[in-house]
Amino acid sequence: MQKEKPFYTYSDIENWEGNWELIDGVPYLLASPSFAHQYVVGQLHLALASYFQARGCHVILSPFDIQLDPEEPERTAKTVVQPDLSVVCRTEQIRSRRMKGAPDLIVEVLSPSTALRDRNQKYHLYEKHGVREYWIVDPSNWTVEVFSRQDGRFQQRAVFGPSDELVSFWQPDLTVSLASVFPPEESEV
């Protein structure tokens, strides 16, 4: 007889030690990130904050809970994520302890413990809930994959490398020079 997996809600995990995400009722403990991961997050935060501040949007660093389905009751929410970076232009979505609804842009920086979840489960969640653009950053290979919405679905629009200027498809005048985004080569992912 197969044992049934436990199902959790936000009220179960909100006071647990550490940083947790909840995807379809399954909790995931987020491991401490590497130097390379945090370096990339920091550099992208600088670039995005300088661009979006003038547009009345907020760039949010993890850990900050995002409840993708705003209609779901807060206490019983079964999916709450903590993307590495989120850009939110509808500031009424932001509450003191979490955000309700999909951000406009999400950036996930891959690490060995999260890469499959970022590429599969989270990709589909972000697409389903209306994220306009999703960047998957791979610090091991020094690439950024940009997916943007087209006809209600994500389309891979481009893959950028360390010598490229990343261009957003959602905000075409947003460009990020990737030369300074990735850490020195000797840093571990």
Score class of each variant (00 low, 15 high):
Q2N: 12
P6W: 01
P6M: 11
T9G: 00
T9S: 12
T9Q: 15
I13H: 05
E14M: 14
W16F: 12
E17Y: 04
G25L: 09
P27D: 06
Y28D: 02
Y28N: 01
S32W: 02
S34T: 13
H37Y: 08
Y39L: 07
V40I: 07
Q43S: 14
L48C: 11
L48P: 08
A49C: 05
F52S: 03
Q53D: 09
R55F: 02
H58V: 05
I66H: 03
P73V: 10
E74F: 02
E74G: 01
R75L: 08
V80Q: 00
L85Y: 02
S86D: 05
V87F: 14
V88Q: 14
C89G: 06
T91N: 13
K100W: 04
G101T: 08
P103R: 04
L105W: 08
V107G: 09
E108L: 08
V109G: 06
S113D: 15
S113I: 05
L116H: 12
R117T: 15
D118K: 06
D118V: 05
D118T: 07
Y123C: 02
H124Y: 15
E127S: 09
G130V: 11
G130C: 11
R132G: 04
R132T: 04
E133T: 11
Y134Q: 00
I136H: 04
D138N: 14
P139E: 07
E145G: 08
V146R: 07
F147M: 06
S148D: 09
R149E: 12
R153A: 10
R153G: 10
F154V: 08
F154P: 03
Q155R: 12
Q156V: 04
Q156R: 15
Q156I: 03
A158S: 15
V159T: 10
V159N: 07
V159K: 08
P162A: 13
S163A: 15
F169W: 10
F169V: 05
P172Q: 08
D173P: 07
L174G: 10
L174S: 09
T175Y: 08
T175S: 14
A179C: 06
P184C: 03
E188F: 09
E188L: 10
